[in-house]
Computed example of a mutant assay.
Amino acid sequence: MDFLEMLKAVLFGIVEGITEWLPISSTGHMILLDEFIKMDVPKEFLDMFLVVIQLGAIMAVVVLFWNQLWPFSTKEKYFIKKDTFTMWFKILAACIPAAVVGLAFDDKINELFYNYQSVAAALIVFGVLFIIIENRNKGVSPRINSIAEITWKTAVLIGLFQLIAAVFPGTSRSGATILGGILIGMSRTTAAEFTFFLAVPVMAGASLLKLVKFGFAFSGSELILLIVGMAVAFVVSILVIKFLMNYIRRHDFKVFGWYRIVLGAVVLAYFILA
């Protein structure tokens, strides 16, 4: 095992752990990182690696929100937590649009939109939208202030916003769903929490799909790189999720909007001038 390749896996895990939860597009950052830090692995493994290390990020959500996600209780007379089951059904309903489109058109979407022009455009457009929507909502009280207040209609609408991110890389799954949630009257904290919960089946499904396509045909060194990337993504995600939940209690998302615009411009400039 090349120690340099291990360090590269660590760096990819750090970037994944940061960008998966902040609404700034993990895809845009991964494209830039891959330009500057090339992993010495087959392309098929790299394509799978960049998706499956998300499993580490998912586990961070499971660990941090276990009590809200686990639908069974040993402390109460009725050990099934009905509200938690209902929440999960709403999450699954929100996943349906992206799951259908992803399964049917995954390869075609990658062929058409997985390029620097599309990613940069999505970064900039959604960055502008973040700023516009936050300015529009300034002083407006949210109608939905907890996960329990999310209706079936709201869950499906969030799923449609997630579909935008599934089709256009660079949109940011968390960015699209948080922005959508704020638009339809959710508080920032509730929109962020629902986005985290929604990520569990979505990212687990995407990772499983990539693993099946790859065929589980790992060499020993490839398996170590994957485990390292996932472990680092897990630790970093724990820190980033805690930071984000504290941050949005006192601040809006406009700073992320400006960051997206700058990053989109950097992506365009780099590839045009390279």
Rank of each mutant, 00 (worst) to 15 (best):
G17M: 10
D40P: 01
A99C: 12
V266H: 06
A98N: 02
L226A: 10
Y116D: 04
S174P: 02
A269N: 08
A155N: 05
R173F: 13
I184W: 05
A265F: 08
R173N: 11
D107N: 13
S207R: 03
L179G: 01
A104I: 14
V200N: 11
S73G: 06
G170E: 10
G205L: 02
D106F: 00
L103R: 03
S237Q: 12
S187K: 04
V228Y: 01
S118G: 07
Y259D: 07
Y247S: 08
K90M: 14
A204Q: 04
R249D: 12
P142F: 06
I227T: 10
Y270I: 07
G180Y: 08
V128N: 01
V52M: 00
G28C: 10
Q68E: 14
G229D: 00
L129T: 09
I58K: 00
I227A: 12
V41N: 02
Y78T: 15
Y114M: 15
A98C: 05
P169I: 04
V236I: 15
V202C: 10
G102W: 03
P169Y: 02
A120V: 10
D47P: 00
N110M: 08
L163R: 08
A199V: 09
P142D: 11
V266F: 11
A120W: 03
K43W: 10
I147L: 15
G28P: 09
I178A: 03
F216S: 07
S73D: 12
V228E: 02
L157I: 15
V10E: 07
I24C: 10
I144S: 14
P23Y: 01
V266R: 06
I37A: 07
F45Y: 06
Q68A: 14
L268F: 15
F89H: 12
D83I: 05
F113G: 01
F243V: 12
V119D: 01
A122F: 02
V119K: 03
T177F: 04
N246R: 14
A9S: 08
Y116H: 11
T27W: 06
M203A: 04
F214Q: 07
R250E: 12
L112A: 14
E222D: 06
L179E: 00
V119I: 15
T177C: 07
A274E: 14
S141Y: 12
N110P: 00
L157M: 15
F253I: 07
H29K: 13
G185I: 11
I133V: 15
F36L: 13
L32Y: 02
I91M: 10
M6G: 05
I147A: 09
F36A: 12
F256V: 06
S25D: 09
A99E: 08
I150K: 01
D106M: 07
A206T: 03
S187M: 07
D106T: 00
S118K: 13
W66Q: 09
I182F: 14
I133S: 09
L198M: 15
S25L: 06
R136N: 11
V52A: 02
Q117P: 03
P169H: 07
V128D: 07
G170T: 13
G13I: 01
A122N: 06
Y114D: 04
L129F: 12
I184H: 04
F271Y: 13
W152I: 14
V51Y: 01
S187F: 06
L33I: 08
